[in-house]
Design a protein around this nucleic acid. Structure first.
Lengths: 154, 154
DNA sequence: GCTTGTGTTTGAGCGCACTCACACCTCTAC
DNA sequence: GTAGAGGTGTGAGTGCGCTCAAACACAAGC
């Protein structure tokens, strides 16, 4: 029981991150601005990815992107929102094949909602065990750091 | 001082993962049994990796492993402990090149302790921001799950 | 009008971390 | 003594997710 409290405390502390994701960018993205209309370089910069990656994602069918008169990509708010979601899933470990499957389900309409939900539930479980694994590694690393710091030669 | 107690507690508790690594195996590994003397298949099974991976790690110089009369690898407790450390670092995102560097420092003796410490500190920061990132993704996923679950068509 | 900058498509290339194929070896059990 | 399971070293192959190269198009500024 007090074991449990200590765990909670340890986890809460381990979670508190100096140097995480750019909050400003997230806020700006969440603003859901209907005036959003970015070129590929701007979009890539805001999302923190390579422009090549955005073209690649379009090429493999993860997003459809509008073009201007010159044939250049224009990213509006819905496109950016989808990309934010996709990139978040990707960078948290979901493979591209699953993302393909997911967007195919979305495109297939409302009757695929339960399948999508299943995918999300599964990804949630994956995320949870990833977090647990990383926290174990973090604790082990901190332990080793402590042994190095307290005794010059352990 | 209470830092230290918390660390001990965190370590002990963080080792207890819901849906994570095999506890039995960890306990067995932690037993630091001087009688440990496994063949490659047993070792791989306990560590949850492919035997090929263990040969690969040896090939690239991450570990040195003793042989029996037939030339077959025998993994004793120190070898297993090093592998546990290496695999933990790897599966928490440290690239092989960094592991190479780290073991080279270890092999170079005591005067490299501060460099090793720096590497560990850096990896700790990486781990912390990884955890933060995953928790953000987890929150986003749970939010989406909630929207799917509470309203049939959001 | 020509350079510079930014974009386009498509196919090819890359880096990482394994993972496998192959040819050979060495026990054990029958 | 021979089959079969499990090992060995080494070079090659694989899968993933980008990332780049090449050849071309347009638009603005000097």
């Amino acid at each position: 029981m007090k074991e449990d409290d200590a765990l909670q405390a340890a986890l809460r502390l381990a979670v508190d991150p100096p140097g995480g994701v750019s909050i400003g960018a997230l806020r700006e993205l969440a603003r859901d601005d209907d005036a959003t209309d970015w070129d590929i370089a701007t979009t890539a910069a805001h999302l923190g990815v390579n422009p090549h990656t955005l073209r690649y994602y379009e090429r493999i069918g993860l997003v459809r992107v509008a073009r201007d008169a010159a044939g250049h990509r224009r990213y509006d708010a819905p496109a950016v929102r989808r990309l934010v979601f996709l990139i978040r899933m990707r960078t948290s470990g979901m493979p591209i094949s699953d993302l393909r499957q997911y967007v195919d389900l979305v495109d297939a309409g409302q009757d695929t909602v339960s399948e999508r939900l299943d995918m999300l539930l599964e990804h949630r479980d994956t995320l949870r065990s990833q977090v647990a694994h990383l926290q174990l590694a973090l604790a082990a690393t901190e332990y080793k750091i402590a042994t190095y710091q307290e005794a010059p030669r352990p």
